[in-house]
Design a protein around this nucleic acid. Structure first.
Length: 598
RNA sequence: GGCCCCGUAGCUCAGUUGGAUAGAGCAACAGCCUUCUAAGCUGUGGGUCACACGUUCGAAUCGUGUCGGGGUCACCA
């Protein structure tokens, strides 16, 4: 039970006793009390006023008095201002938290109410180009959402579908054949994904050149693009691939293996992992039989050219092609098949797709199509759509090379971390290895926090000219707070203080910042539950920042090691340890590590 | 054009199922290190919540319309 839940049920009981009316927690709100008023939590009375036919002031006074009398272990005071009943929590409630939960490893973690088996599909890269900033947002969101769901007691399978075939892959292959003169990652000393990406850009340059030539000789731009020799060659290559022509397959395997090696390096570095990887080259034929069945059941219809469609006009989604006239599949075909395979393979109760919001329409169509085809799991697929990362200088476009490369930005963040650290000069005794580790922790911490602190659904803007900050609402700020606490703990332990002692219990008049800190620590449970419910890591980021900020105020105001009294010291050590534990736990859900010193 | 999303401080973002005087960070300015790490703390300035009307005890939040931005409506992936 959280404080808020305690207050809700206490209020429900009191209302029942006073007025003999039944209310639920949905009938009224319990908010945090605004700082300008006295109190910790506030019951908003307006909603109750209607059914009880009392003035807000009268209701507030009656309810407040009843709560204070009947629930004296919960509350120590109240005041009513307009329609707001401000409640003060009893100090025992607060100190109990420090006594009871201090030694608990799982502080904050919720026992699952209804654990589910959930798949989170994320990352899902194309193998024709390296990852960029937008992919990083996808990776961090997907990974973090999976961890948050786990922390809420669910069983989670992280998966990825690698788009390793198709016309776009052939583009890189054709350009490599034309221009590379046999270049390999080894011969060029370049990461494989970057090498392949270079030829994807080259393809588009060459295509543009050929289109210009053709338009000058009188073709329309559309014709020119279709008839450009390099495009014709690419289409031929796609046909050859589908027929398994050895020479093409060999090149495809070779270039993809370069890319995988590059991706693996990047994934390892940013801490992404998958329990199950699907490859489009294995799944692209899935779903064909399901479409045929749908046709036989008259759920789908056939056009004159033999192509098979679904009519989603009722859902305002138009008509959608599911199988071409020549019997080959489109993207939607395999998505239908793969959706089913996932549910059958893992007996999932929920399947989450972390995909950009540009595919909102596609994902709606997928869901509706699955519904019409009669799959009950259609209700359990969820598109976690996230907004694109845009640059202040415009949109990122791989084919034009105007992207912020993932490896580059991570390098940059780590070297910025190194630069800051050197300037501050606090860890001069660190070894080379220790320094390298610290720089990675800080650089990646800044990067991940930056991308995760924004609501996934919203698009966000990145200014490539400004480096990502290390001050304020940032990962390093929170990491710094953790390191500060570790420093205190090192000091007092060196002086012989046993931070794990169970003998002392906290009994103390709480100062305002101490009180506030306990209340904030207690809210970690809420942050965890909310972030899982909303599939939103930003709620964790916001929470942990608020906690760190509050601790820093506390830190500058009160001394832990040299507290005014021994009992104050016990209290503050516990506050510090719990703050550190929650920071570590919360950041770990964002994929961010904490340093003991920085 | 149809459908969907967005518009909050100079910039980047919070703002819970409608709740009290709309909050942070960055940037600017002024303070704070002989005492646990100044990657910090304290304070100041900065707002027509795009605009208009409506719903009600109460609207940044809900509704309608207007303006502005984005996405999508492929036998691309």
């Amino acid at each position: 039970m959280t404080f808020i839940q305690n207050i809700q049920s206490a209020a429900i009981n009191s209302l029942k006793e006073i007025f003999n009316e039944d209310f639920t927690e949905n009938d009224f709100q319990v908010n945090e009390t605004k700082p300008e008023f006295k109190g910790d939590y506030t019951i908003v009375l307006f909603a109750l006023v209607k059914t009880l036919k009392l003035s807000p002031e009268k209701l507030g006074a009656t309810l407040g008095e009843h709560l204070l009398k009947k629930q004296s272990e919960l509350f120590s005071g109240f005041n009513v201002i307009k329609g707001f009943l401000n409640l003060e929590l009893a100090e025992n409630q607060l100190t109990n938290l420090l006594n009871e939960q201090y030694h608990s490893e799982s502080f904050g973690f919720i026992s699952p109410t209804s654990p589910k088996k959930i798949m989170v599909e994320y990352s899902s890269p194309n193998t024709n180009k390296p990852l960029h900033l937008g992919h990083l947002r996808n990776n961090f969101i997907g990974w973090s959402v999976a961890e948050i769901l786990k922390a809420n007691g669910n069983e989670v399978i992280k998966s990825s579908i690698v788009n390793d075939r198709g016309i776009h892959i052939c583009k890189s292959m054709i350009a490599w054949k034309m221009f590379a003169e046999g270049a390999t990652p080894e011969s060029t000393d370049k990461k494989g994904d970057h090498l392949v990406g270079d030829y994807y850009v080259k393809f588009n340059d060459e295509l543009k050149r050929q289109v210009e030539e053709l338009t000058q000789s009188g073709k329309s731009p559309e014709e020119a693009e279709k008839e450009a020799p390099i495009m014709l060659e690419t289409q031929q290559m796609l046909l050859d691939w589908e027929q398994g022509k050895p020479e093409v397959m060999e090149l495809w395997k070779k270039m993809n293996s370069w890319v995988y090696k590059g991706f693996d390096e990047t994934y390892k570095r940013i801490g992404c992992d998958f329990d199950r990887t699907y490859f489009e080259s294995n799944t692209y034929l899935l779903g064909k039989d399901l479409v045929q069945e749908g046709l036989e059941k008259n759920i789908l219809f056939k056009k004159d050219d033999g192509s098979i469609w679904i009519d989603l006009n009722e859902e305002k989604l138009g008509e959608k092609l599911l199988l071409r006239g020549d019997g080959t599949s489109v993207y939607m075909t395999q998505d239908i098949g793969l959706a089913r395979q996932k549910f059958e393979e893992y007996l999932l109760e929920k399947s989450i797709y972390v995909i950009g919001d540009e595919q909102l329409h596609h994902m709606k169509v997928l869901k509706e199509t699955l519904k019409k085809l009669g799959f009950p799991f259609a209700e359990d697929i969820f598109h976690l759509s996230y907004g694109m990362v845009e640059l202040t200088t415009g949109k990122m476009k791989s084919r034009e090379g105007t992207v912020v490369d993932a490896d580059d930005i991570v390098d940059e963040m780590i070297s910025t971390a190194a630069q800051h650290t050197e300037e501050l000069g606090k860890v001069k005794d660190f070894s080379e290895d220790e320094l390298r580790e610290l720089y990675e922790i800080l650089g990646l911490g800044a990067m991940k926090f930056y991308l995760l602190r924004v609501d996934p659904k919203k698009r966000m803007v990145f200014n490539p000219d400004d480096s990502i900050d290390f001050h304020g609402f940032t990962g390093p700020f929170v990491q710094y707070t953790y390191a500060r606490i570790q420093s205190i703990l090192r000091k007092i332990q060196a002086d012989g203080y046993d931070i794990n002692s169970e003998e002392n219990s906290v009994k103390e008049d709480l100062l305002p910042l101490e009180r506030e800190l306990i209340i904030t620590l207690e809210k970690y449970k809420n942050a965890l539950a909310d972030s899982a419910k909303e599939l939103n890591p930003a709620l964790i980021a916001t929470y942990v920042y608020q906690l760190a900020k509050l601790y820093n105020s506390f830190y500058s105001e009160h001394s832990v090691a040299n507290a005014e009294s021994e009992s104050k010291k016990i209290l503050r050590v516990r506050l510090s340890v719990m703050t550190a534990n929650i920071i570590k736990s919360a950041l770990s859900l964002l994929g961010i590590q904490v340093p003991d010193r920085m």
